[in-house]
Every structure is written in structure tokens, then in C-alpha cells.
Design a binder for these strands. Sequence first.
RNA 1: UGAGCAAGCUGAACGGUCGCGGGGGCGCUAUGCGUCAAUGAGGAAAGUCCGAGCUCCACAGGACAGGGUGCCGGGUAACUCCCGGUGAAGGCGACUUUAAGGAAAGUGCAACAGAAAUAAACCGCCAACUAAGGUUGGUAAGGGUGGAAAGGCGGUGUAAGAGACCACCGCUCGGAAGGAGACUUCCGAGGCUCUGUAAACCCCACCCGGUGCAACAUCGAAAGGAUUCCGCAAGGAGGGUUUGUCCGACCUAUAUCCGAAAGAUGGCUGGAGCCGUGCAGAAAUGUACGGCGUAGAUAGAUGACCGUUUUAAAUGACAGAACUCGGCUUACAGGCUUGCUCAAAAA
RNA 2: GGAGAAAUACUCAAGUAGGCCGAAGAGGCGCCCCUGCUAAGGGCGUAGGUCGGGUAACCGGCGCGAGAGUUCGAAUCUCUCUUUCUCCG
Length: 111
Amino acid sequence: MKNTLSIKLNRDFRRLYYKGGCVGSDILVVYYKKTSLPYSRLGITVGKKIGGAVVRNRVKRLIRESYRLIESEISFKYDIVVVARSKCAEADYKAVSGSLKRLLKKSGILN
RNA sequence: UGAGCAAGCUGAACGGUCGCGGGGGCGCUAUGCGUCAAUGAGGAAAGUCCGAGCUCCACAGGACAGGGUGCCGGGUAACUCCCGGUGAAGGCGACUUUAAGGAAAGUGCAACAGAAAUAAACCGCCAACUAAGGUUGGUAAGGGUGGAAAGGCGGUGUAAGAGACCACCGCUCGGAAGGAGACUUCCGAGGCUCUGUAAACCCCACCCGGUGCAACAUCGAAAGGAUUCCGCAAGGAGGGUUUGUCCGACCUAUAUCCGAAAGAUGGCUGGAGCCGUGCAGAAAUGUACGGCGUAGAUAGAUGACCGUUUUAAAUGACAGAACUCGGCUUACAGGCUUGCUCAAAAA
RNA sequence: GGAGAAAUACUCAAGUAGGCCGAAGAGGCGCCCCUGCUAAGGGCGUAGGUCGGGUAACCGGCGCGAGAGUUCGAAUCUCUCUUUCUCCG
């Protein structure tokens, strides 16, 4: 599967918040759960508190790019939701990418 | 040189590697996959404050209610917009601002203060009477209150005063000239009778039907619901649809209609379009010719890394299309151009 | 994306045909009664934010989301902006 599939339904997000594992840093929070589907899925949540449409779009793109580059290293199939915290508005690509990689290692998704 | 005013433009460019959206070409085992070269957020995309297109409701009709606009002329599809002018206010000036009709059509309101607020005598001034205290009358020049005090200022006049009278200014009316008009200028007359507020009700003139692409149409369509009464019929009652209300209009018996959540397709981008040149016009703008093809997503596509150039700075201000246009308003790092004003200095 | 509503003290709020309005009322707060003590209950009462002045009592200015405007005067009328909430498939 070439393209990254995204989580779209509200009930999928709710299930992850309720049942999934959770790790966090000062700019990101990651919820994750193993899935029976034959592929991994990514959901991104950027709340309105973080900024206007321009800032939110930028944060989403940074997270998506970071995930794209490390997606192939994930061995099992997971549902992953990345939530941006308010400090993320000022973060650059390196901070987001490093933070995401550390969190995925911490949760055991990434070796 | 300094300070400032006005108008307008701009809001980095190019290349490489990986990646994304929709469309196109080509290939293949063809509702898919691969590949190729293009293309892919703004001046405000924002706020949703106006005006339209377009959609459905009747082809958008009538009355009332409600709302909007408000000096004049022009522009525009239209406008609460734009351009030019008039008046008023502010600034030494360039220039800026201006919801700018009517207060002798009517109603309301004007707290407190003050003697008195649309109507006048508290103090004062003057006269008469009185032994005096004071009483009666005249008077709006002076005092004080107030946002506003009975046209202003100077003189004549008078017991003291007063448009009572006079000059100038203001106001109203009439006439003449100029102008397309708002209005301006001049002349004459009149009486100072007439406070403010219409972003209070209101009057006058003009305009506005509702609904907003989450509209709407088509496909699909479960549970369930509707299709009433009188009459042979015409029609009537009742019910339903449309608007804030009423009228009016339309629908109302055998197979059609309605129908939650969730979904697919269309609507969805070629349009009052953009660029250049000429012509008309004082300008907004109009018009002729030539050229261009310039996002269309549906949880929502532009990112990461590197290099080069321009630059004071490129790690970049405000900021992300959601049916589409025309405006307005608000936010904004800076940079550039043009015209003009004041001050100082020099000539 | 579109349509609409609201903002007043620490909280909930009344006040909107402009003027004795800076704030009614309630919660809250303080004091008293009741009790051995507390809670509950009852009674009474004040100030309210901020800036300045004053030893203090108190006095003055600005404050009804923010900024302009109309008016002699604005919580109230008009415009612009901010924030919050609701509805529309």
C-alpha cells in the first residue's frame, strides 16, 4: 500500500482515546493501538487553540511528513493518532520529527 | 535636509532529490496500476457589512407590517460602492472628514443647576408712594446658572431700557445674473415672530417578496406515515405548500406522495474573466483590436532537505480558496514609484 | 461554508421609549442569635473593579466586552472590531 491511509471517522478517534496506549511530549501526544487491518492508519488532530488555518495546516504537514519518512520502519500494523499541543505552533520540522520518532520508540511501535 | 500630505505598485526568484491534489497524454493483465510532462491559495483568500448572478418556492402578484437609502450630477448588472462637484467642520499648508432632506405637519424628551427652559423679574437699574423698613409699576443693558437665556456688535434714544430707530453682519421672503444641478454672486424688502434633538417617534422622496450551494436536482431508499367530509357533477368545507400577517395562487382517492442517520453523482468553475495597445471622457468608466486559458478539494491537496541569485534582511508581516463575481471594513514585516506642502539653509 | 443570538461586580443576573444610574435582587462575605462546640436555621449589615490623594474616615477620576460617532449628556442610539454560544446536511 503506497499512500498513507488516514483515520477519518470520529468513532475511530474515540476508540483510540479510550482504549489505546498513550505517550506524550511537550509538543505532541500519540495514541496507538494494534489493528487487525492489513495496513497502518494515521490520524492527526490539531485543535483550534493552536492557531489559525495557516498554522494548523503547517502543523499537519509537518506531522504527515515526519510520519511518511519513518512509516516503512514500523513492523506491525497500528492505528496511530497524533495530537498537537499548543506549543507545536512555534515548533519547526526538526523538533516535530525528533519528537515523533522518540515517542514511537517509547511506545514500542518503532525499534 | 527635516517634518508631513495624497495616489499607486509590490508582498522574492530559479534549480535539484523525496512526497501530495485534481485533470491530461501514453502503456499494461484496464472501475485498477505504472509512467511522462505540465499545473496547483491571497492582497486581503479574513470579517460576512452591503450589492448582484444562480437555486427552489407561482411566472414574484396585491395590501399591511418591517427594513434600507437620503446635498447635486455622472458611472455601473447592481449597491450603503466609485468618480467629479456644492455646502459645512478641521489644518499655517499640501489636504482631510462629512448618515449632509424636513424641527412654521404633529407628538415626545431636555436630568441637575437656575428667578425663569419655550416660558420669564432672583439680584440689579429706573420711576411713583412711604418717616423708614418696604410696596406698586417699568425694564432683558449688567450679574450668576446652564449644552442652550429670547438675533450679534457699535451707536441713537430713554427716567432706566428695549430692533423702538440706524449702520454692518446674520435670518426669512422676492427679483436678476451664472450653472445641467446642488448652489454661488448681486439688488431690494421685511420683521427679529422661530432653542436643541429626527444615529426619538415621525413626515416626504426613492428602493426592497422569501431562501441561501449545508440552496437545489438526480440516484438509492428500511421502519413508519398521509391520501378527510358533503355532492351525480360543477363546486364547497377542511387539510397541506409558499411569506412576518392577510389576500391571492397551487395541490388534495389507488397508485402516488412524505420519509431519520449515513451515502453517491451533479451543482463546481469560461466569468459583468485577466493582460496589452488605441480611441472617447476631467475622472470613475465605456468601447475596438490582439493575446491568455489561470485551483476545484470534501476531515479537505503546496511540505521536507539542499544549492544559487537579488536584498539591509529571505530562518519572511498579516494570513489558507470551499458556488461565483463587484465593493466596503479590518490585519499587515518591509520595499519602490509619482505628485505636492511647510520649515530651515544656499543661490 | 452559511444564518442568528449574547457579553453588566467573584458567580447568577435586573435595568434598554437617553438624565436624581454605577448598579435592583440573589448567591457569596462580615457580625449577632441559637448550641457545650460546629453544621443547618433565623436576624442585621456593609463594601464592591481600577487609578490618584489622604494616618484614617473618606474624596475624586475612569470603568456595563474594546474602540469611534450622534447628543448638552450613552449601559441604553449608530458604526467597526473581539470573544462566547446556538441552529442549518
